[in-house]
């Protein structure tokens, strides 16, 4: 049948019936038929599709050179021009879970086809790859293999057919940290009234935007000797040299910029501008020291109160995803650590 879906399946040496830990270094083997769990997948596809190739790879072989072996797997998958790709299920096998996540993420990204795997929630592969792909929830062992395979097949077909609802609870995958627009049965205004009435009556209700409040950041220890401490100025107010030579983004930043203040007593409006897209910048444009107070800090330096780092760090804090903010902050921390800086003054808008 020409319209049968072509399916490729990735498994490890154990499920590929090559061997256990002793065979974990085995290289990639391709069989053009279903093997092990693939036999179950094939029968559950119930004629809609069939496994045209099984890729078997040793857990150590891929774990020791994950990116390169993943690339090799993707190249092989590509040759078979599949419609759907399955990997695992990996249960609680750590190296196998990471391998399944890695090849699924790469297949999805490079070939744009549905890529489905399943594993136990504590499998390290889940945490690494859940942001990239839907990973189905599986038990920690293979006792109920048939049930897991059935879920994988159903999910793969719903991805292929475009009927997926992206509902982690209903569809049994680990929440990935993303969202899509959804149309409800009831208007938002009425949902808010219902939620309030439930809350007042102590009935169960579910917030649609959960609040993350677990994060506790302890205050750092105070400086012991201010006069010997070097201070850096950091802003998310998007101050940069005129002409924005490095092309700092006005919003949705992914990086920060370092601008030298060597030999400068203050920041002049002739030399600096502000490219932030979310506030009235006129006061900053009139006097950039209002945003990055180098003039005041230099005076303190002259008076021997503290030392000043000869550059300021700048980014644009506007509609920046939290994930980007964390990455920018990590980079800033690294910069601060590598430049003998003792403290930072953060100025915002």
């Amino acid at each position: 049948m020409a319209d049968k879906l072509r399916v490729v399946h990735y498994i490890n040496q154990f499920f590929g019936q090559i061997g256990g830990e002793d065979a974990a270094n085995s290289e990639i083997i391709v069989e053009e038929k279903p093997i092990g769990p693939g036999i179950g997948i094939n029968s559950m596809l119930a004629g809609r599709g069939e496994i045209v190739a099984t890729i078997i790879c040793g857990d150590n072989y891929i774990a020791e050179d994950l990116d390169a072996v993943t690339e090799k797997v993707v190249e092989i998958v590509k040759q078979y021009e599949p419609d759907i790709f399955f990997a695992g299920p990996a249960f609680n096998a750590g190296r196998y879970g990471v391998a399944c996540g890695s090849v699924c993420a790469a297949v999805k990204k490079q070939l744009g086809i549905p890529a489905v795997t399943a594993m136990f929630e504590e499998n390290p592969g889940r945490e690494i790859y859940a942001p990239d792909i839907c990973i189905l929830k599986a038990a920690d062992n293979a006792r109920r293999m048939a049930v897991e395979l059935k879920k994988m097949v159903a999910f793969g077909l719903s991805l292929y057919d475009g009927t997926i609802e992206y509902d982690p609870e209903k569809e049994g995958f680990f929440e990935r940290g993303w969202m899509i627009l959804k149309r409800h049965e009831e208007r938002a205004s009425m949902r808010a009234i219902n939620m309030l009435m439930d809350k007042m009556a102590n009935r169960p209700y579910k917030t649609e935007i959960p609040m993350q409040i677990e994060e506790k950041i302890p205050a750092p220890a105070p400086l012991t000797n201010l006069a010997e401490s070097t201070i850096v100025l950091i802003t998310d107010g998007a101050l940069c040299p005129q002409g924005n030579p490095e092309g700092m983004k006005t919003s949705t930043s992914t990086q920060f910029h370092v601008y030298s203040t060597e030999g400068k007593d203050s920041l002049t409006k002739e030399e600096y501008t502000c490219v932030h897209g979310g506030f009235d910048t006129s006061y900053v444009l009139a006097d950039p020291n209002r945003l990055v107070p180098l003039d005041a800090l230099r005076k303190l330096e002259r008076d021997g109160v503290c030392k000043v780092h000869n550059a300021f760090l700048s980014t644009s804090g506007l509609t920046t995803p939290v994930t980007n903010s964390i990455n920018i902050a990590k980079g800033m921390i690294e910069y601060v650590r590598n430049h003998g800086i003792d403290a930072a003054i953060l100025t915002s808008t």
Partner: peptide
Amino acid sequence: ESQLGWTYYGSQKF
């Protein structure tokens, strides 16, 4: 998109 709640839209977290 209505911040006053005039639409049936919301978000599906996944």
